[in-house]
Design a protein around this nucleic acid. Structure first.
Lengths: 140, 140
DNA sequence: ATTCTTAGTTTACAACCGTAAACAAAATGT
DNA sequence: ACATTTTGTTTACGGTTGTAAACTAAGAAT
């Protein structure tokens, strides 16, 4: 049961920048986040340190300023986070939660097609009803 | 900017039981969670207290044992949690995150139809591409 | 070489969370 | 009425998170 390291809300903001740029110096991250948020540079430095401790980032320390690179793939991080949250939910309600997300998210035409396709596949084996197991003794 | 109270993973387990039962005494919650988890009853009591402080639960204190009732609707809680998490994500990747969820969740036939319907509606106004704004100065 | 600046490291502190024991008050059994 | 059990309240403690200042080491400017 190796505990999964989770990313806090603030840490997500840092990772998004580094994922988007591919790699970044602390100055780049700080400049961008000082425009996006009201965080002080010290705060952002702390977040970078914590992300290194959690093995989400590593510093290329051959020369300064260090270049920070992601150690986890963005899609993998999203997969873990989202599924981790869905694990909290009543099985019966996940379908409606997904519908709610569809309605509240901006999604491209091609992603819409992809999701519809995934739903078509799903429909071939999907049950008529999903049972609630909120009271059952399934170990969490 | 009134801070939204969030529910921790452990607190979710308590809420799910009370939502499913409609209301419950601490004994009911404790009995169920002692079968589902290895938490001690003291732990579960603490969670109930914290959920009251966060206004997710209230105790009917007219007679003992108290009866605990949800102060927040389960669907509303799910909506808030899920959208709160999606706020962390790069806009460009939300579509694929939803597809991933579809593939990894058990969903009923009728929920599948509902989601497809929502996607059809969405497709009428969906953009060809969604722009990434991870580096932009939108206040979080 | 000495000073200024930038970037990385250490320390800080309150709130929240997982986890639970200890304590107190009410209800129940005898 | 008194002992026992149940249930609610208080206190605890280490780890995480938001938030940041202070300190230090390395580069850059003079």
């Amino acid at each position: 049961m190796t505990e999964i390291e989770t990313m806090s809300k603030a840490e997500w903001q840092v990772m998004r920048i580094i994922w988007t740029l591919g790699q970044a110096t602390s100055k780049e991250v700080i400049d961008i986040l000082e425009r996006k948020t009201d965080w002080k540079s010290a705060t952002i430095k702390t977040l970078i340190v914590r992300l290194q401790k959690k093995n989400f980032l590593k510093a290329e320390e051959t020369k300064r300023p260090y270049v920070y690179k992601p150690l986890i793939d963005e899609d993998m991080a999203i997969h873990q986070s989202v599924n981790n949250l869905f694990d909290n939910l009543c099985c019966m309600r996940k379908g409606q939660a997904i519908k709610d997300l569809v309605q509240n998210s901006e999604i491209s035409q091609s992603d819409i097609s992809d999701i519809v396709e995934a739903l078509n596949v799903k429909a071939k084996t999907a049950p008529e009803e999903v049972e609630c197991n909120c009271l059952e003794a399934n170990l969490i």
